[in-house]
């Protein structure tokens, strides 16, 4: 608002571009009249249609929110030594690189530099890919590096997730309160104590070098136990049980009875 000499008010128009350097020819905002086809104003024409995309998105998002309540675990306990750390899923690929032998320990730098270079290259992409071509197939180097990176990220995320699930499954569940071995007089216990099983899993199934088998009947099926005996699992080598298939069946049956709570 400014006052003229006659005292009447006149509206002031600030010049929006006054802070921008005068040579505007060098830096030209594209005129949409140059693009063929149906242009429309952002507000209200475009937004009145575009809000529908937002609405569809919001419905999908709220469905996800209501279907899956986020988990909250027990309060952090720094003395808990058995907890398996896992980052949020979108960091899994970075986490997985550092687990490989060629990128950890003495070669830790490899595991840090590899993603470091990748993100650095992403930041500087306009100066690494300087051609005027925009189409994917006309700039094969940039496109193929990006596609390879995407495949690696997907693979590493999958590998990390698969490894984590495997570790969770192989971790023994909480120890049962009763520690009495069921059916000690059974033929199964005799087979157990006469074979190599007893040296690692203990006289009373309490676990020594291997995990405790108390309560194993609660969380393993006959097929699983049989497979582990034959093929081994984690630290346990294959073929530790030397008996006949019939004897193995007796052993599995006896192990299934171990349902201590």
């Amino acid at each position: 608002m400014s006052h003229k000499h006659d005292g009447k008010m006149e509206q002031v128009h600030y010049v929006g571009d006054s802070r921008v350097r005068a040579k505007k020819d060098k830096f030209r905002t594209p005129d949409y009249a140059e693009f063929p086809g149906n242009n429309e104003a952002f507000l209200p024409d475009f937004l009145l249609k575009e809000w529908m995309v937002g609405a569809v998105f919001l419905v999908a998002f709220m469905t996800l929110v209501m279907a899956h309540v986020p988990a909250i675990g027990e309060v952090a306990d720094p003395t808990n030594s058995s907890f398996l750390p896992v980052p949020d899923w979108y960091f899994l690929f970075l986490y997985q690189i550092l687990k490989y032998k060629w990128a950890s320990g003495d070669f830790n730098l490899v595991g840090l530099l590899l993603p470091g270079f990748a993100f650095g290259a992403l930041l500087l992409a306009p100066w690494l890919d300087r051609s005027n071509e925009r189409r994917v197939l006309k700039r094969p180097i940039a496109s193929s590096i990006m596609i390879l990176s995407l495949i690696s990220i997907i693979y590493l995320t999958w590998a990390a997730e698969a490894e984590h699930i495997e570790q969770l499954e192989s971790a023994p569940p909480e120890a049962p309160e009763t520690t009495d071995v069921v059916a000690v007089e059974d033929e199964g216990y005799k087979l157990y104590s006469e074979s190599a099983c007893i040296t690692c899993h203990g006289e009373n199934l309490e676990g020594k070098n291997g995990p405790s088998l108390l309560g194993v009947g609660n969380y393993r099926t006959a097929e699983e136990i049989d497979r582990y005996i034959v093929e081994g699992k984690n630290g346990m080598p294959a073929g530790m049980f030397q008996g006949t298939p019939e004897q193995r069946e007796v052993l599995v049956e006896w192990l299934l009875k171990q349902q201590q709570k």
Binding site: V12, Y32, P36, G37, N38, N39, A41, L43, K49
Partner: peptide, 21 residues
Amino acid sequence: DITPIWRDVADHEVPEHVNPA
């Protein structure tokens, strides 16, 4: 003189090739 501020946002044209409609 606030009109140019919001008109600048409102009036910019959306080209056909980015319009899902």
